[in-house]
């Protein structure tokens, strides 16, 4: 019995720091009624120096269109390994995209920026449609997009 309790205490002690290193975040993007096909959206993070860190989500599954997400494409070269397992359907005009995920705690209040590139078939590309610093103070504050996204928020 004692050994079971000791094991339980040890595993709890090992698990807790891991949980503390991530926080649940909800990202919500409300799209405008721009009157076109579904929008391709690339959500990714850059570090304080502006260098690409990684992708959080790709809305739109056909890689042949990724070159129109120009900033994301410039960072990644269109490498689909960056978005395997985090890719879903494109988002229609007027719809909202809500993503729930556990983000690494180290990303907040450390100079990291969340970006969204947007593109719609037969319409203008919109790199850096959203660029919002990841801060605890900025959580819940709506940010306006440039062309296709009406507003974007991240909640913790």
């Amino acid at each position: 019995m004692k050994s079971v309790l000791a094991t339980l205490a040890l595993t709890t002690a090992l698990t807790l720091p891991g949980l503390a290193m991530a926080r649940p975040v909800t990202l919500t993007a409300q799209l405008n009624n721009y009157g076109g096909d579904g929008a391709y959206l690339a959500l990714y993070v850059t570090d304080p120096q502006g260098a690409y860190v990684g992708s959080l989500w790709m809305a739109g599954g056909k890689s042949k269109y990724y070159k129109h997400l120009t900033d994301w494409y410039r960072f990644t070269g269109g490498d689909t390994a960056q978005i395997n397992g985090i890719t879903g359907a494109s988002v229609g005009a007027g719809r909202s995209l809500k993503i729930s995920l556990d983000l690494a705690d180290a990303l907040f209040d450390a100079g990291y920026t969340l970006h969204i590139d947007a593109a719609v078939e037969n319409m203008r590309e919109s790199p850096n449609e959203i660029a919002v610093p990841l801060t605890t103070a900025g959580a819940g504050a709506a940010v306006s997009g440039r062309r296709y996204i009406s507003n974007f928020t991240y909640d913790m």
């Binding site: 891991g18 949980l19 290193m21 991530a22 926080r23 993070v45 860190v53 990684g54 992708s55 959080l56 989500w57 390994a81 960056q82 978005i83 395997n84 397992g85 985090i86 879903g88 359907a89 988002v91 229609g92 719809r95 909202s96 995209l97 809500k98 993503i99 729930s100 995920l101 556990d102 983000l103 690494a104 705690d105 990303l107």
Partner: peptide, 20 residues
């Protein structure tokens, strides 16, 4: 498949998505 190990996903849990 699991999300890429890019250091962004704290617990490695895949994101869940809802479109309304």
């Amino acid at each position: 498949v699991a999300p890429p190990k890019n250091g962004l996903f704290g617990t490695g849990t895949p994101p869940t998505v809802q479109v309304n």
